[in-house]
């Protein structure tokens, strides 16, 4: 199987999965108890003419099959319906834009920092496996895995927000402040980002650490490592040129998985810190029963998952030829 054929196959399978998700999304929100049109149009927060418009556009008075076709058509036009909580603003506008940017900045930087720290610690621990430092790092990562993320946020707010007054307690920027320059704005924004970012880095670090450590330990058992040692190469060369490169392979799929968080946001962290991102939007939509927005986010998440995994598969095949011929 050549590279092109491999890519084509993966693309086709991604498309089929995406279609399945659309079907799932369509039915999940229509099997709810009560009137199914309630989740799309029948909400007091919409104007009567908006409700009529939605009813017509999504064919809500027609049989389910017709509704599904119309749903597909509208989806490909980029029409995901109207938000309830924002009184008729199109769902696409609610999701894209400001909130997505906030989540991108927070999640992107947190994941990057957690990756670098986790992978470095993982490499050191794997090299000195069985040492006290290694065991301490394992316990540390098991502890961080077991901490509820939202509670970690609450602790940071209590200690660094309330007692020490170093970080703001909530929000993305200070409300009611006029900024003189862009830099003032940026500084305030970053100041608000410290709390959620620290929370996220801690919650991600242990996972990255354990994965990197185990991946390296697997590589250490390979014959080419023995060869490298027998050749008398320096520890540094062995560790970073021979071991780390190969151990990075499994990390590609981890990164692909984490791309999803760029779109879903960190629901727990964003909720505790009221960071105005997509995670908070999910929470607010659940509390305010804004089903159209939830459906929209579901589709966006699925699209992100599938794209990220498709890219990861292609990258895998590029760096490791065994996969495409396997």
């Amino acid at each position: 199987m050549g590279f092109k054929e491999y890519v084509a196959r993966r693309l086709l399978s991604s498309l089929v999965t995406f279609f399945l998700i659309i079907v799932l999304n369509f039915f999940i929100f229509r099997i709810m108890p009560g009137d199914p049109t309630r989740t799309i149009a029948r909400d007091a927060r919409l104007l009567p003419e908006q409700r009529e418009l939605l009813k017509k556009r999504f064919g809500l008075d027609r049989p389910l099959w017709d509704q599904f076709i119309l749903y597909l058509v509208n989806l490909f036009r980029g029409d995901l319906g109207l938000s309830f909580q924002y009184r008729g603003t199109p769902v696409v506008e609610v999701i894209l834009g400001r909130r997505m940017l906030n989540t991108f900045l927070l999640m992107g930087s947190s994941i990057a920092v957690a990756l670098v720290i986790g992978m470095t610690l993982g490499t050191i621990a794997a090299w000195k496996r069985g040492s006290k430092a290694d065991i301490a790092a394992i316990i540390f990562s098991l502890v961080t895995y077991s901490i509820p993320t939202f509670w970690m946020g609450m602790l940071l707010i209590l200690v660094f927000g309330y007692y020490l007054d170093w970080i703001p307690i909530s929000g993305t920027i200070t409300t009611g402040v006029e900024y003189q320059t862009f830099w003032e704005y940026a500084a305030d924004y970053l100041h608000h980002m410290v709390g959620p970012m620290v929370t996220l880095v801690i919650s991600f670090i242990g996972y990255h650490f354990l994965l990197m450590r185990n991946s390296l330990l697997d590589v250490f058992t390979e014959d080419y490592m023995l060869t490298a040692i027998a050749k008398g190469l320096s520890t540094r060369t062995i560790l970073f040129k021979h071991a780390m490169r190969n151990a990075l392979l499994p990390m590609i799929s981890v990164m692909a998985l984490e791309v999803v968080y760029l779109f879903s946001g960190a629901t727990a962290t964003e909720t505790v810190f009221t960071w105005q991102g997509l995670g908070l939007l999910i929470y607010e939509s659940v509390v305010k029963q804004d089903y159209p927005v939830l459906q929209g986010i579901f589709i966006f998440m699925a699209l992100a998952v599938l794209t990220a995994n498709f890219v990861a598969d292609v990258v895998y095949a590029l760096v490791d030829p065994r996969i495409r011929y396997g």
């Binding site: 999803v260 946001g265 999910i282 929470y283 659940v286 939830l294 579901f298 699925a302 998952v305």
Partner: peptide, 16 residues
């Protein structure tokens, strides 16, 4: 497909 969806948001949607 399910394994890669972020779990918390998905649970939230189900609970809602």
């Amino acid at each position: 497909t399910f394994i890669q969806m972020p779990q918390l948001p998905l649970m939230l949607i189900f609970v809602s």
